[in-house]
């Protein structure tokens, strides 16, 4: 997919530039943007090192495990079909906590393990269960406390207060997740009746 998007952007840009007479600019921008990519990554490296270091402390001290236990009651409400103490519960908890803390790259492995565990509970093997639908909808709506990447990019491009968007982001993502949960619950009820 990315192959086509990438080719589309470059080729469309070059073809349009041929008509708008901006070929020189296209060449210069291509070179300048590549260099800019490196700069952005260096800025991101600093913030990411800071955040991943702190999160490593949270992991090693057992804080993340504690949090995954604490959200059990929420999981019981969201996924009533998972037997209490089942592996799926543990993986989903880890996935959700990773998303909440903005550790996007750490959320996928437990997420895939959760799918595997849910598939064991699933009766129709080629069809998504209610639990799977709910899990993915909630996962995609992603409640997030901190998006460190966005803060780093804002800083890179000269924001006066890069972190000012944290509060508004939390509010917006909470709303989208509540909508996701309501939708999932309504569909679940409709499918039971």
């Amino acid at each position: 997919m990315l192959n086509y998007i990438w080719a589309f952007m470059i080729l469309l840009g070059i073809i349009v530039a041929a008509f708008t007479g901006k070929m020189g600019e296209v060449t210069n921008t291509a070179i300048a943007s590549s260099a800019e990519g490196v700069e952005v990554c260096f800025r991101l490296l600093g913030v990411l090192a800071f955040w991943m270091g702190i999160m490593k402390i949270a992991e090693k001290s057992g804080l993340i495990n504690l949090l995954t236990l604490k959200i059990r009651p929420i999981l019981r409400f969201l996924f009533p079909d998972i037997p209490d103490g089942h592996d799926a519960q543990k993986y989903i908890a880890t996935n959700i906590i990773a998303n909440v803390l903005g550790l996007g790259w750490g959320a996928t492995p437990p997420g895939l393990l959760a799918m595997k565990a849910l598939q064991e509970l699933n009766l129709k093997k080629d069809e998504a269960s209610n639990t799977m639908c709910m899990f993915l909808i909630v996962n995609i709506s992603s409640v997030q406390l901190i998006s460190v990447n966005i803060i780093a990019y804002r800083a890179q491009y000269g924001s006066r207060n890069p972190s000012e968007v944290i509060g508004p982001s939390i509010l917006a993502t909470t709303i989208s997740t509540i909508v996701a949960i309501i939708f999932g619950k309504l569909m679940e009820r409709r499918n039971k009746a």
Partner: peptide, 21 residues
């Protein structure tokens, strides 16, 4: 792992932006 991807995409977005599309 992010850097090469980001460079490739920033270049593509840069081209489409500079072309006026």
């Amino acid at each position: 792992t992010i850097m090469p991807t980001l460079i490739g995409l920033m270049m593509a977005v840069g081209i489409i932006r500079a072309s006026g599309s």
